[in-house]
Nucleic acid binder design. Sequence first.
DNA 1: AATGCAATTGCAAATCGTTTGCAATAAAAA
DNA 2: TTTTTATTGCAAACGATTTGCAATTGCATT
Lengths: 143, 143
Amino acid sequence: MNQHASHKPDYEKELRRAGVRITRPRKVILRILTETDDHPDAMEIFQRASAIDPSISLSTVYRTMKLLEEMGAIHRHAFEGGRARFEQADGEHHDHLIDIDTGDVIEFHSNRIEELQEEIARALGYDIVHHRLELYGRRRRKP
Amino acid sequence: MNQHASHKPDYEKELRRAGVRITRPRKVILRILTETDDHPDAMEIFQRASAIDPSISLSTVYRTMKLLEEMGAIHRHAFEGGRARFEQADGEHHDHLIDIDTGDVIEFHSNRIEELQEEIARALGYDIVHHRLELYGRRRRKP
DNA sequence: AATGCAATTGCAAATCGTTTGCAATAAAAA
DNA sequence: TTTTTATTGCAAACGATTTGCAATTGCATT
């Protein structure tokens, strides 16, 4: 098991490559995503964006996130608690441990678990297309 | 890893013990749940109930499911695809493999995976409160 | 069996997160 | 610059679930 390190992608270049316009609202949103290393939901992104440019709408945040998701630049996660949360897609698969008190997300990866999942699916006659492993926990108090 | 066998609980007795009234709509819904061994969503339960008594409302289905959930008689799962799906709670924990073509749900359990999860959480300084492991797969074609 | 009353119902309206239609605006091509 | 077309903000629509409310119904009591 090992934790996961992140790097900063150039969303603007990716968008340009996808042939879409680099608008002012998009610039702001992309900047926020680049500077972020947590897993914000649309409302959080909207609020951070509003602080920079109050004219940006929540719709545009959603539209931009959908765009980035479709081009594979970010992942959308449906953790517990209503809102979808986003993170940059950096190619390396990982699962999530969510702090139920703070909402903090810790990424981890276990080859052993992935293998076991494959084994189980195979035994049941299935091929795994994707999976979802979320641990909801509470920080252990010092004893 | 082993698959999971289900048994039929007496929801009506449980409800009575909880001190709520056994109404006609509730009787119908409970009967449907008892006769079911898949993982229906509220709309499916509503439709099955409507076939028996067309006057039953979707609200009552939701209210009854919430009631049963609160007394621990059923579990609510937020699989992919919008609607929550329900299953009887029979004490034995298991995870789910969802057939992405049919929506079928196969239950499984792996002590090894559970141990690894614990290990990971511990290493990260957390206690697991609950977790969610869902495999989304497709039936393997005979080669 | 008839009564009384709180629990439960069906309905419509409200909720929450997200998406969408549309007319106005702004990027980028010419 | 002007033109073309994508993108925007807004409000309204959305789908799943919940809720307020007045009408009904279980069921404990006579």
